[in-house]
């Protein structure tokens, strides 16, 4: 137990080197490359990928698939003058030099903390690392912060839980995805450390236990509000605000 914990702690300090055992399914790469994810989903997927060493190759492969799909796409006839107007437009279109791509990536926000708990991509989105987040009470030993929510109730949020905390049995109407950023937890489906992703759907009811040895910080994406089974948790839910 203590060996496992020290490994987990070490892994969390070197998150990018830790190779996640539980990966996000490849359908998320297709989602990213096809641009069909919601903002919260895209952010979740990109944060997961920042733990995966071969993420660039994976994304490039998914994009190659997009190119292949375009090649296979049916054709829609363009207006008769489309060619002529494009040719005319070329006269006023200056070609950019090979090297200068105007602001290829947004300049890192000044809040970004090197070696923080949250990967750079998530820090840039949320405006800093965990210490800059406005955590609020979720339950005993648990805090949460909401990063994004859409009109369908899909929510991207973070959970910060103390070691040993047991998160009550809960079910999901949709799917819930959890990415460990720091620390580790376990449940009926396995053990999850930094970079690991757990996906659960409405067929699962689960208890989740934070491992001893350090706090656990997770990024979660839920389709709809969680439903806790215990009556205390249920009574609390209106105030939790997830």
């Amino acid at each position: 137990m203590s060996v496992a914990n020290s490994q987990t702690l070490k892994a969390s300090q070197n998150a990018p080197q830790n190779i996640p055992k539980h990966r996000l399914g490849d359908e998320w790469l297709v989602g990213l490359a096809s641009g069909t994810l919601s903002e919260g989903e895209a952010m979740f997927a990109r944060t997961c990928l920042s733990f995966v060493p071969e993420a660039a190759n994976d994304l490039a492969l998914a994009q190659t698939l997009g190119g292949a799909a375009l090649e296979r796409a049916p054709q829609a006839a363009l207006k008769a003058d489309a060619r002529a107007s494009l040719l005319a437009a070329l006269d006023g279109a200056e070609m950019e030099p090979a090297t200068s791509s105007p602001a290829p990536s947004p300049a890192p926000r000044k809040e970004r903390q090197q070696g923080g708990v949250m990967p750079a991509v998530l820090q840039d989105y949320a405006g800093g690392d965990v210490d800059r987040m406005k955590w609020s009470y979720l339950g005993p030993g648990m805090k949460k912060v909401r990063l994004w929510q859409n009109d369908k109730g899909q929510t991207l949020w973070m959970l910060r839980a103390q070691p040993g905390v047991k998160i009550p049995e809960h079910t999901h109407e949709g799917t819930e995805l959890t990415l460990v950023l720091k620390g580790s937890f376990h449940d009926a489906f396995g053990h999850y450390g930094p970079g690991d992703v757990e996906e659960t759907d409405n067929s699962h009811t689960h208890d989740l236990v934070i491992d001893e040895g350090g706090e656990c910080i997770c990024l979660a994406l839920t389709d709809r509000p969680l439903k806790f089974k215990g009556w205390i948790a249920r009574a609390m839910q209106p105030f939790i605000g997830l």
């Binding site: 990213l32 490359a33 641009g35 994810l37 903002e39 895209a42 952010m43 990109r46 990928l49 920042s50 993420a55 660039a56 994304l59 490039a60 994009q63 791509s101 290829p104 990536s105 990967p119 750079a120 991509v121 989105y125």
Partner: peptide, 11 residues
């Protein structure tokens, strides 16, 4: 979030 592997620093 623009998803472009050219501008994806982690990638």
């Amino acid at each position: 979030v623009m998803v472009d592997f050219d501008t994806c620093p982690e990638a």
